[in-house]
Design a protein around this nucleic acid. Sequence first.
DNA 1: GTGGTCTAGACCACA
DNA 2: GTGGTCTAGACCACA
Lengths: 123, 123, 123, 123
Amino acid sequence: MFSLNPQSGIPLYRQLVDQVKLLVAGGQLKAGAPLPSVRELADKHAVNPMTISKAYSLLEAEGVLLRQRGKPMTVAAHNRQGPEAQILLAPLIHQLIQSARQLALGDDDIIQAVRQGLEQHHD
Amino acid sequence: MFSLNPQSGIPLYRQLVDQVKLLVAGGQLKAGAPLPSVRELADKHAVNPMTISKAYSLLEAEGVLLRQRGKPMTVAAHNRQGPEAQILLAPLIHQLIQSARQLALGDDDIIQAVRQGLEQHHD
Amino acid sequence: MFSLNPQSGIPLYRQLVDQVKLLVAGGQLKAGAPLPSVRELADKHAVNPMTISKAYSLLEAEGVLLRQRGKPMTVAAHNRQGPEAQILLAPLIHQLIQSARQLALGDDDIIQAVRQGLEQHHD
Amino acid sequence: MFSLNPQSGIPLYRQLVDQVKLLVAGGQLKAGAPLPSVRELADKHAVNPMTISKAYSLLEAEGVLLRQRGKPMTVAAHNRQGPEAQILLAPLIHQLIQSARQLALGDDDIIQAVRQGLEQHHD
DNA sequence: GTGGTCTAGACCACA
DNA sequence: GTGGTCTAGACCACA
């Protein structure tokens, strides 16, 4: 469900925060759904529990997750009108386009590259 | 020419390194071309000169740039067959697709979102 | 300036958060004023730097403090109309009165006890 | 009779322990008096029975309560000369004064704030 | 079982 | 110099 990449330069806890938001916005994590426990995620991704815990705490502070004592974290019920997909993807698309421009690629090249990527991801 | 975003979570020096590589691979920085001075870049982007300097040093170590005493850094002549655009963009495309999947978007939605991004960038 | 008590049952980071808020509300920490560095506070109070850091991060998230890369944390400029002293003290006064009532003390006894406390604090 | 506040940062079992001590010291719980059952308290305050049980056990270990098989816990007969009210309130008063000082309040302001609190509690 | 707090200590990014 | 991230590991509060 989650994919953490220690090489990406982006802090692990932040990768997790972003991915939870995406899954909630995409409806794959529905209101009330429990998240994996801190320990479970930590084991699965070979990461320190505190790193997971930090991400969960930030998500609670943002109102995405709900903390109930002694129970697993759950997706908050009233997550205020999830932002549009477009908005969540915008930074990534922006960065992709910027990088492609620096590579002197044209619009068609970019679309083409994305299409190729999509094909490879159909494995 | 460069665009540094302190909010992105990616270290500034790494953003700069990546962008220089893209510009070289894309031919917008040709062999022998001079780079902006450390101070110039630092001022322009409101960043500490040491941050720029670190990026330049890494690029020198990787053979992308050439340092000559008393002169600006230049693009190295023999930058060993710049990697294909596809390879440089791959991580970004991968991350875009992964995020879109977490948003439960289909292939067409993704292409569509990229197209919209491209249009906005034609400003 | 700060006083951390590990015995109180209240998490150290939370004690610090509360005290910073009080000092800001009371005007003893003015807008723009730098806070002690994480390490300095940690050494002074024999506490782990991460504990201090966590408090500072929470205060930044609440808009009380400002984080500038490479520089000490400072008191945020526009800390939105500091809450009245009355409001910040309310929980403490509430708890004092509740405890005194459980002790079967009358109003005068409570005032008297506070007066005695004040005298002792004039040392 | 009891008031548990999960937000206060102070562990629930500890809040309960403290309040029992106050009630005993204040004479509102006399020697031999029965305490509410674990289940009753747990239900009433929407708290796990083990939390109540832990508090009761600590109070028994301290000699404040007496556990008899099959009967409710009772206030111990010889509770060694309950400490003076002043001593039990001291930590609260200390914390109040410290916080008020950080708010830059004078003695009169503090007394005034307590008086206001007392009036509101006469509801 | 759940998450929370704290420590000791390494290493990083930035000014 | 500043704060940030992460780890390994102990112990706590609560369900």
